[in-house]
Amino acid sequence: MKIGVITYPGTLDDRDAQRAIRLAGGTPVPLWHDDDDLKKVDAVVLPGGFSYGDYLRCGAIAAKAPATKEVIRLAAKGLPVLGICNGFQILVESHLLPGGLIRNEKQHFICRDQKLRVENNETAWTSLFEKDQEILIPLKNGEGGYIATDDTLKMLEQENRIAFRYVENNPNGSMNDIAGITNERGNVVGLMPHPEHAVEAGFGPDTPTAMRSGIDGLLFFESVLKMVVNS
């Protein structure tokens, strides 16, 4: 089961995403932004970082890269795509997901373990979660405030396309506490927090059970692997 991870100039979390895929039982395939060959992968992760130095707008230049154009083409045919943090920004700049991401409400770069609620467990990347399950994964961003027009927000709410909401506190001023959304088909998911940083005991967030034992992020990757196997 091959899951591609695209590296853009300035991407930081590509290796972590590859490691998460490996721990979930998949085979990570490194992909390069300037190559429109996605090597017949079964799914793609757009990892976090600062692609193209966040020039112009976060994700704007990466949205026009040859590899991204191929992602856009294949996503329309149902290829599962997960955008994490900067990857989420690339997905909105590519118009694969609606809305935009702006500087955090309080201007600070935020790095902490964040509680989320899984609002939609029928996407390619969330099927192994329970509906309304609360999970804990790291969040680290400066421009994570989700915004959209009133019409778009209404549509997202009505069509159950909000995949994750922040619980207990809204760290960045995101509208309707939105942490992540999905497309109509459920194959494209984008979120600001980082599931790939909560995949192995000893290196994840602290939980009531033990320090650094949080591995809630693993289910994202196991979900997509299960879906690919079954299809």
């Binding site: 707008r57 704007a60 026009k64 909105v92």
Partner: peptide, 8 residues
């Protein structure tokens, strides 16, 4: 389509 983002 590229230089600006009409959402923001």
């Amino acid at each position: 389509n590229f230089l600006s983002n009409d959402v923001i």
